[in-house]
Design a protein around this nucleic acid. Structure first.
Lengths: 232, 232
DNA sequence: CGTCCGTTTGAGCCCCGTCAATGTATGTGG
DNA sequence: CCACATACATTGACGGGGCTCAAACGGACG
């Protein structure tokens, strides 16, 4: 957890994050508000019930939006990727836990002052609206992935989604990547159990669709066959 | 499907919808753009793949955001209630089908001109951001309702959600209401089959938690017992 | 009265959750 | 360096909940 002056000039998400809607002059106002913060895997950024007095932009790494139900089981409601925005501008307290899935790096801002900047610079508000709309689409895609689909379809769909997220170009999936999630987290995301996820992965490996290296590494040997597995 | 001049003065959602962020003068600009439209149950407002050249505010009734998967099964991704906003401002084409669940009434706007109005009146953009954030929360609540829960828990949670939506005051559920969804639509929303939904409802009635009148009517005899059913 | 559409109910089976044991990687202390 | 502890992953056996297939029921409307 470190705090440094921001360095937008070399920021890897400077032209994808919400702040990219601002010009140099406007961004310097934002710079004065924000500080960097780094998280290690497992670190909690916000806790459900916390005062929602900060928000942030993810620069690198990955976060999960999670919730623990009455039975003590964790449900993962969404993943946040670099350039994503974190924080609830309109809720008095946080609804969910925000936890780092891998070592991560963020720009953090005091919420109140960030909101003032939205009023001062409408382009920032429009950029956030765009991000929010994209998050909504992604959330609905995740719902479609999970609703009324078998374990095989969910795991196949998840692998495709992770391959696309790992790739720089959004059109073609990466052939080889590391999962930022444990089996338990995959299960919590897909609404399955650890054992079922594990069994599906072994099945995929047995039929030659993927190859596992260690617990996290995945290589897509036959991406073309994964699509049909996810659909049918 | 009718088109009339707008009558904001008597609009039932005039202080909850996005346009409530505008003053009289600004709203009159919006009025010039929009027309009313009424839908009957089953009417399609937007089709997936359509040019996203219109957006709308729902005045009364209810809509579903739906998608048909490769197997031909419909998945319902979200419900839209009065004062809700419909349309994708940042996508070239519609991702989902938007269909009326019951007879509905909307304000429709050409998207391009609506976007211009957002640029001219930043308060409108902020209101939409707020709505979008709320939709996101709702979408994630629906995910939590469905993930890793039994059929009984899902149907119980669904009944509670519908009772709250049917009530005017969001705190207390309505004791008696009509479901705007068929069994098939409930199943498509909860990720179950028609048969399972039907069986759960008969079980609830047998143990005296609810009473059914016709296919659509539901009376909550013992709302206090429904919460635990949904949680545990 | 008859048709159509949605709902209800029943019978059987399979997928996936539960419980349990084993395997593997990493770190810690002697 | 090895023994040990911890955490995560894999694999197996078993049972139950929900999906599939199938039939009967009920209301709306001509």
């Amino acid at each position: 957890m470190a705090a440094n002056p921001l360095a937008c000039a070399v920021c890897p998400v400077r032209d994808r994050a919400a702040c990219s809607a601002l010009d140099e002059q406007q961004r310097s106002d934002l710079t004065r508000l924000g500080v960097h913060r780094s998280l290690k895997r497992g670190d909690v950024l916000f806790h459900a019930g916390d005062d929602g007095d900060h928000c942030a932009t993810l620069i690198s790494g990955a976060l999960k939006i999670a919730q623990v139900d009455a039975d003590g089981h964790e449900h993962i409601l969404a993943l946040i990727h670099p350039a994503g925005f974190v924080g609830e501008l309109f809720a008095p307290v946080a609804h969910h836990d925000i936890v780092a899935l891998s070592d991560s790096f963020l720009c953090m801002f005091p919420r109140r002052q960030y909101e003032e900047l939205i009023e001062r610079y409408p382009a920032l508000g429009r950029a956030l609206l765009r991000r929010s709309s994209e998050d909504l689409l992604e959330s609905r895609a995740l719902m479609a992935l999970m609703t009324g689909r078998t374990a095989r379809q969910r795991v196949a769909g998840f692998l495709l989604a992770m391959a696309n997220a790992a790739s720089e170009s959004p059109c073609h999936p990466a052939a080889r990547f590391d999962l930022p999630l444990t089996r338990g987290e995959i299960a919590a995301l897909l609404g399955l159990t650890i054992e079922t996820v594990s069994r599906q992965l072994t099945k995929f490996e047995k039929v030659g669709v993927i190859k596992r290296s260690g617990a996290r590494g995945v290589e897509l040997l036959d991406p073309a066959r994964l699509g049909p597995l996810a659909a049918g």
